[in-house]
C-alpha cells in the first residue's frame, strides 16, 4: 500500500504540492495524470524519499518515510523499481551491466545475474543488445532497458515517470503492455505518470488528476471517467480549470 496524507512541498517559496492525499492499495495500479508542472514527478520523488515533504506524511506499506534517516531510506528504496523520464541509464556501463547493476550491488552470483539479465532482455524484446552501450540505442530501446533494470530485482513497488515520453504509438503500446506484464509477474504496486491517457485507462485500477499542485480527483478508473474535469483531461488533455 502506498499512501500520501496532506503532503505539501515548496521550492524557493513557490508551492508545488498543496495538501495532496491519496492511497494505492497493494498490487493496485494508479495512473497519475495532469498538465506539465502539476507536481507528478515530484510525488514519485517523495515516494522514493529523494525529496522530503514540508508537511504531511508519506507511507510505503507500513513504513512512514518522514522520520527515516538517509541510511534507513536506502533499505526502503531497495523495494522500489523506478523508470525515469530521461532513462537515467549509466553511460559508462553496457546494457547488460546496467540491467544487472541492482543485482550486482546485492552481491548475487555472476551466473544468476547473467541469467536474469538475459530473461529481462528477452521480455523487453531486445535479446541481443546486452553488449551495447546506451548511447548506441534509440529512445524506445533505452526506455525498455530502463524498464528491465527497474524490474530485474522484482521490486514490490514500481514507479514510472512518463515511461513513454517522446515515443511512437507502437513502442508506447509495447511499453505499457510490458509494464502491466511485469507488474503482474512481480505482484507489484504501481504508480504510472503519463500523458498517454488512452493507454492508461485499460491498465489502471485508479486515476488521480493533479492540477498545479492540487489533487483534483483520486479514485477508481470508472469513477474518474464520470468526473467532468478528469474526463475532459483524459479525452482532450484539457486543463481542469478550462473544463470548469
Amino acid at each position: 500500500m502506498i499512501r500520501l496524507e496532506g503532503v505539501c512541498k515548496s521550492f524557493d517559496g513557490v508551492e508545488v504540492l498543496r495538501d495532496v492525499s491519496f492511497a494505492v492499495p497493494a498490487r493496485g495500479t494508479l495512473g497519475l495524470v495532469g498538465a506539465g508542472g502539476a507536481g507528478k514527478s515530484l510525488i514519485l520523488k517523495l515516494l522514493c524519499g529523494l525529496v522530503r515533504p514540508d508537511r504531511g506524511r508519506v507511507w510505503l506499506g507500513e513504513t512512514e518515510l518522514g522520520p527515516l534517516s538517509e541510511r534507513e531510506l536506502m533499505g526502503v528504496r531497495g523495494r522500489i523499481g523506478m523508470i525515469f523520464q530521461n532513462y537515467a541509464l549509466f553511460d559508462y556501463l553496457t546494457v547488460a551491466d546496467n540491467i544487472g547493476f541492482p543485482l550486482a550491488r546485492m552481491q548475487r552470483p555472476a551466473a544468476e545475474i547473467a541469467a536474469r539479465v538475459q530473461t529481462r532482455l528477452d521480455q523487453v524484446h531486445l535479446p541481443d543488445i546486452g553488449p551495447r552501450y546506451p548511447r548506441e540505442l534509440s529512445g524506445g530501446m533505452k526506455k525498455r532497458v530502463c524498464l528491465a533494470r527497474a524490474t530485474v530485482h522484482d521490486p514490490p513497488i514500481m514507479l514510472c515517470d512518463d515511461p513513454t515520453a517522446g515515443l511512437d504509438p507502437v513502442t508506447t503500446n509495447r511499453i505499457f503492455r510490458l509494464l502491466k506484464d511485469l507488474q503482474a509477474q512481480n505482484d507489484a504496486t504501481a504508480i504510472i505518470v503519463s500523458h498517454e491517457t488512452a493507454y492508461l485507462r485499460p491498465i489502471c485500477d485508479a486515476i488521480a488528476l493533479l492540477d498545479r499542485g492540487r489533487l483534483v480527483f483520486a479514485g477508481p478508473t470508472e469513477a474518474a471517467l464520470q468526473h467532468p474535469e478528469v474526463r475532459a483531461f483524459m479525452e482532450a488533455g484539457v486543463r481542469p480549470a478550462q473544463a470548469r
Binding site: 522514493c48 533499505g75 528504496r77 531497495g78 525515469f84 537515467a88 541492482p102 550491488r105
Partner: peptide, 14 residues
C-alpha cells in the same frame, strides 16, 4: 541532470 544520481540513490547506493 540526467537523473543518474537519483537512479543510484533509488538503487540504495550512496
Amino acid at each position: 541532470v540526467t537523473e543518474q544520481i537519483d537512479a543510484l540513490r533509488i538503487l540504495a547506493i550512496d
